[in-house]
Design a binder for these strands. Sequence first.
DNA 1: GGATACCGGTATCGAATCTATACCGTCCGG
DNA 2: CCGGACGGTATAGATTCGATACCGGTATCC
Lengths: 120, 120
Amino acid sequence: MGNAYNVMAATCPSRTVLHRIGARWTVFIVNALDHGPMRFTELKAHIRGITSKALTETLRAMEYDGLVSRTEIPAHPPHVEYALTDLGRSLLTPLRAVREWAESHVPDIERARAQADAQR
Amino acid sequence: MGNAYNVMAATCPSRTVLHRIGARWTVFIVNALDHGPMRFTELKAHIRGITSKALTETLRAMEYDGLVSRTEIPAHPPHVEYALTDLGRSLLTPLRAVREWAESHVPDIERARAQADAQR
DNA sequence: GGATACCGGTATCGAATCTATACCGTCCGG
DNA sequence: CCGGACGGTATAGATTCGATACCGGTATCC
């Protein structure tokens, strides 16, 4: 397909994109929103171990990049809903693959770590 | 396929795995080693902007996890060669997808950022 | 109407991490 | 003996992260 961007170049904008994708919690949020929109507190409960601060910051950054949308719903009680945009949804495929790789290769990596530890 | 690990659980070992994959430079190293083994200085030149320290640390961590192998070659002049292991090679597919997503969606994200900036 | 709890966050601070810069020992060719 | 390539370390400063505490608005219960 020959696109114009190359992540290996230091000045390439794709660096900042990759930096955002690689950020601590982005993978989790994208995967969590896979099955539909979620509220702030729902997300926080679903992604175990994330703090309010980290969640807020990551969501704001992803919103800035056009990956998620934030909608305040004025119903009673009012609440906030986060959802993947089309762009965010397109990121789902590669990131789901990464998540699946991680989940399915845990034993291999634990074995490698144990072996490296034993070697010393 | 129903594997036993779930990244959403805070205590799950897949978290540490995902954390390593998501580390600043791992994606670059895996992609760089796609086409065969490389030396330290070769890698450093190829991945623009990485410092010796970051490269050393990332390579050590990846070696610990069994993703890359480090071989000192006693030829003259002696040098060090880094290569993907089988495990590392299996990570190539998902990470290449991420890289390609990043490279091909730069314009979308830049547009989103510009629009978000303009909105304020 | 007063107390209480939930929602969606901020504020703050110390700890961990990353970057930049400088330096180093070994080997080799000239 | 001089200089440069290789494969790193050392150190300091900037940045980011996580833990903890707090907060204003809205329902709900009594």
